[in-house]
Nucleic acid binder design. Structure first.
Lengths: 231, 231
DNA sequence: GGATGTGAAGTAGTTCACAGCC
DNA sequence: GGCTGTGAACTACTTCACATCC
């Protein structure tokens, strides 16, 4: 592996959260047939300064061209590498209600490097139906071995589902249920809560000048990710 | 001026993003009939240190009791105030597909201070049906005056919908479509992108020790909002 | 000329450590 | 005893400014 060195670099959390944004921008340029992009353009679209973009990208190795910017195909490639998109992780989704359907049908959710392995639900009406090209399986059975498990069930059954995923030897969980779940040491849980962004918006509305009243065209809030210890 | 509420205090962005998490934890304690909670407990459940919790809460005024912690009802109240939950903002949702339905039916999305005003869709099959107690209106008509507009349509029509919301004098937009939209100065747009959290998870999987490989019980990531390309 | 990449400076956020109070 | 609230120290992140290279 000649590219092993890229793995070794440790990127800061804010940087990691911005890379997917840059990548989407680069993909847009690529679709439009543009071959180059510079840090100022990325910054404007991403809502951050050009300097921040350059710092972030410098962390992936120096692949920009002075005077010309970044080649979009290379940019895409480097970000994909950095984020582990060359890996093809299997993703299982549990809970095929509105949210689960929205996710698996989204052009956006399953990006390169993540592939849908299986869908599970407990509702007999849903089991056996086809969603996003997959037959929904009963939750009662065995869960496929996969890398990432996504929980889209109501909060009341989130913990039960988490336990099941853990039993299936899944060590990375993305939890969309508004419910704190506990898992054994060595398993990662990330929580996604779309009400938080609404609440942040409300805070700023309520307080006049935030990052938005300030007259900016748009504001960018970045994921804060952290961890806790438990039982 | 000092009679005014805690409004005046300016909270840091990371603090604002954590408050909704603390609030959910406090609500959980309240439901379980517990009257007090301390910073260490909140920290463990939220995935941050006890010191961070105390700093954050100190920003809302000193309402803890030394030796005993925080009274959950007071804690809830203070956070609600700080986030502007006493305001009752009207929220309109455009795009009643899977995602729109998931949002409006979620116990979680519409929190105190935000109330659903109207739902819109362009699909004749959907218009006129009842969702979450509201009759879905045609997007072709006039959009109700509201405080916050939520976009849940496919990326290709996101800009068009944004224009319409702006015309309806809405100055705060929450965009779930993976598409950068441009709005006039003075309008705030927050982006929610649930693939980002998955990508962060993948990065850490790929790199072994992240905030998760470190052997922690679980990590807490907060929904990311971001920005991508436009036009 | 024009844009990257990066030391140096500046700013924001977190953690330490402990005084203060219950 | 226990836990809050906070100055002080520390760490992380961002921005400035410019040397560097195409």
């Amino acid at each position: 592996m000649s590219t092993a060195r890229l793995r070794a670099r440790k990127l800061s959390e804010p940087t990691i959260a911005r890379l997917p944004v840059y990548q989407r921008i680069a993909e847009g340029f690529e679709r439009r047939g543009l071959s180059h992009i510079d840090s100022r353009q990325i910054g404007e679209l991403a809502g951050v300064t050009a300097t921040t973009v350059r710092r972030d990208l410098a962390g992936l190795g120096s692949f920009g061209t002075r005077g010309a910017g970044y080649e979009v195909s290379v940019l895409n490639e480097r970000i994909a590498e950095a984020l582990g998109h060359d890996r093809n992780y299997d993703v299982v989704v549990v809970g095929i209600g509105n949210l689960g359907r929205a996710l698996v049908n989204s052009s956006n959710f399953l990006i390169r490097g993540a592939q849908l392995a299986d869908l599970y639900d407990s509702d007999p009406e849903v089991i056996g139906t086809e969603v996003a090209g997959h037959i929904v399986k009963p939750l009662s059975g065995e869960v496929t071995r996969a890398t990432v498990g996504v929980i889209c069930v109501p909060p009341s059954s989130a913990q039960e589902v988490a336990d099941r995923l853990v039993r299936a030897d899944i060590h990375a969980i993305l939890n969309f249920a508004p419910q704190v779940i506990t898992v054994p040491l060595g398993t990662a849980v990330h929580y996604v809560d779309f009400s938080i962004e609404l609440q942040i918006l409300m805070y700023h509305l309520n307080n006049g000048t935030g990052p938005l009243g300030g007259g900016l065209l748009h504001s960018l809030g970045i994921a804060a990710s952290s961890q806790s210890r438990g039982t």
